[in-house]
Every structure is written in structure tokens, then in C-alpha cells.
Simulated assay, not measured.
Amino acid sequence: MLWSTILLGLSFSLSVQGDVTKDRDERLKTAVVLDTPTTGASTTPDGRAFLKLARVDGTTGSQIVEVVGDDQTLVSYPNDDWNSWNASTDSAADSEKKYVSANAQRVGPDGNLWVVDSGDLHGFSNSSKLISFNLTTNEVQRIYYLGDVTTRNGSINDVRFNGKYAYLTEYTIGSIIVLDLETGDARMVLREHKSTVASMPLSAEGHLLRAQSTGEFEFIHADQEEVSPDGKYFYYQPGNGYMSRIETKYLNDALKNDTTADLLPNYVEPFSLTPSTGGSAIDAEGNIYYSDGDRQEIRILAPNGTTTLLVRDERLLWVDAIWLDTNQRLWLCASQLNRSNRFLQPNNQSNTIEKPIYVYNIDVGHSPPRLDHA
């Protein structure tokens, strides 16, 4: 009887493992096909779709584009001028109204398109900025210049919203930036705290990554971030994983209160032993979806800290900046970023990206929180 029980348990274990490790999952549907990597998609409720193109494969051109028509034409957004940065010829004034180094884009809860521009602070102090575009007029609504906050060495990475506040991760120093969207006041907090600084290099497809330019291991500090649907918690982590959380009331108060800012490390809680990942998204129930760059998986992190597998598929190579649309579909950009010219490749190749590049959809049966985006 005992042996039968053991065999039954073994059989179940092997069956589950077989589902986990299969190479293809038919639930993945192709949404967009590209000839250059994309590290982020976002959509509006009426069906407009935007992409952040990562020029890490030797291609040049627009950084932020809209996908237009059945033939999926990529159109510079909001226009060619914003996408025309040339470091050799453009001025400091140009850097204030062009994408110098766009790092993320997303439709916000106000229905505007928000673009995070890391900029180039060594030569252009106002190039580090958060830009809001009105999607009705396709014109700039407001620009928040953050060079004075990020300092010369900081690089903003991504943004999330919580009422009148925005939170941005900063990945070269390791910090969080709190921004008052009404006043424009901003402050860097948790600078070089253990929760914002990567303890290990990035990894993907089972390998630790080294920078092409230096040969050194690549560390990405504060990167992924989400706000709980009720606005109570801010979740964040470095690129190599290990997610923490903090109550947003402390972040918000720290914007103006020096004492609270100094005490913020006392309010940080470890939350989950997440892996090296490219991106995340959150749904209205507070489930966080994140990619596992080593296992080509998308996993679900519940509000109680437990994790489950959503999908594993060999095509999910470095899924970056996951997006959940109003049709309850995750948008998964298989960017292959680890195979790009940013990192050392086998046999001294400049990059090993296999084209075309795919953006996939998968139904998850959950909607995005209204706090996060329209």
C-alpha cells in the first residue's frame, strides 16, 4: 500500500514536471512581428498599441512607435522630431524635447502615454525626464525634468502611478524617485539601500551576463516595480530579483519630510525570492506577473507571496516590461535582450538575436487595476 502511494505521488510529480518543461504552449498568440527588439508594449482601451524599440541589434531609428493598421506599420510617436536625437549635433535645448535614451513607455491611469527618458546626464542635464502625451491631441501635456534629482550618475528606468504620485526606479545608483505629479517636486530615496541594489548580475538562459563594453558582470539595480490595486504597497526589485515592498504612505511622506526619508529603510519588507527578470505587471486582484529570464517562464506572484506558473515556452526569451490590457491579455515582448550587442556573446559575435522578434498575447482572465492604467 505504501509503495503504491509512493508510485502515485511520483507519477503525479512527473506529470506536473512534464507540463512545466514543454517547449511550446498553444495559449501564446502572436500579436506583433518586428525586425528590431522591443522592450515594452502598452495599449489603450480603444485598441491603440505602442512599443518601445530597443536599438541593441545594430539598427537605428525611432525609439517610441505606434503600431498602425492591419499591416502593423510602425509610426514614430508622437512624430519624427521627438525620435530624431543625434548626440553629435543636437544641443542641450534639443535634449529637452527629444528622446535621448527612452527606457520605457506606458499608458497611464489618465489615458495619456507616459515615456521615461533616461537621457544622458553627463552632457545634457535636462535630458532625464518623464513626458506625458495627450493621446487625443498627440501633443505634449507635461514634462517633468529629473536631472537635478537623479544627479549626474542616476538613470531612471520605469514608472508607476498612485494618485497624484509617481514612483520611478533608478537603476545605475540603485534608488527610488518619488514624484508629485501636481507640483513637480521629486526626491530620490532608498539610495543604495540593500533592497534597491543588485546582489548578483543579470542572468538569462542560464548564464550570468557581462557588458560588451567592459567585459564586467552587468548589474542592474532598482528596476521592476508595481503598486498594489488599493495603493497601499509599492513593490520593487533589482534586475536580478529579490522583491521588496514598502507602504506608499511612507514614500509619499518622505518626499517632503527629511525624518521620514531617513527612516525609510526601517519600513522596507522582503516580499519574495523572485529570479532575474525583464519585466512585471499587476492585475486588479493584486497578482504580479513576472518573467523568469533563465527558464523562459511567466510566473504569478499572489498578494500572500506564493508563486505559481502561468506559462513556460522556449520562445519567451527575455520578456521585458509586461503589459496587461483591458481584454485581460498579457502582452509579452520576447526581446532577446541578453543576445544583443549590449552583452558579451559567444565566439565574440556582436549579437546573436534571431529575427523576427515577436510580441505575444496570453489570456489570464484578470483585468488591470484602474490605479495602474486606463
Rank of each mutant, 00 (worst) to 15 (best):
R27W: 06
D253M: 13
V107L: 07
M200E: 14
Y360I: 01
L34S: 02
S128V: 13
V178H: 01
T248I: 05
R48C: 11
Y289I: 00
S280G: 04
T259I: 15
L181Q: 09
S91D: 08
P369R: 02
G47L: 06
N240C: 09
A254S: 15
A302E: 11
M200S: 13
I143T: 15
F217V: 08
S199F: 03
P270S: 14
N341E: 13
G111L: 02
D80E: 15
S125A: 12
K98F: 10
T30Y: 08
K97A: 08
V33N: 04
D110A: 09
L263R: 09
E66G: 07
D320S: 03
V227K: 00
V178T: 03
V107S: 09
L330I: 00
I173Y: 07
N134D: 15
Y165D: 01
T183R: 13
R187W: 10
Q17V: 12
F161K: 00
E66C: 12
S213G: 04
R339G: 03
Y290S: 02
C333M: 10
E26K: 11
V268E: 02
L190W: 15
T172S: 15
R191Q: 13
T60H: 14
S132T: 02
V227Q: 01
T352A: 02
N341F: 08
N338Y: 15
V32Y: 12
L179C: 03
Y145L: 09
R329L: 12
Q224R: 04
Y236P: 05
Q328Y: 05
A222Q: 08
G231F: 05
V33T: 15
S11N: 09
T277G: 15
D253F: 04
V115W: 07
K232R: 14
H193F: 12
E314R: 14
N162Q: 10
A204K: 01
T150I: 06
S127L: 05
T260S: 08
S95Q: 05
G241A: 02
L309C: 07
R48H: 06
V189N: 02
T150C: 11
L135G: 00
V33R: 12
D70I: 02
D292Y: 03
N157T: 12
S13I: 13
A87T: 12
P356H: 01
N153C: 06
E192D: 11
V115A: 06
T38P: 06
I220K: 10
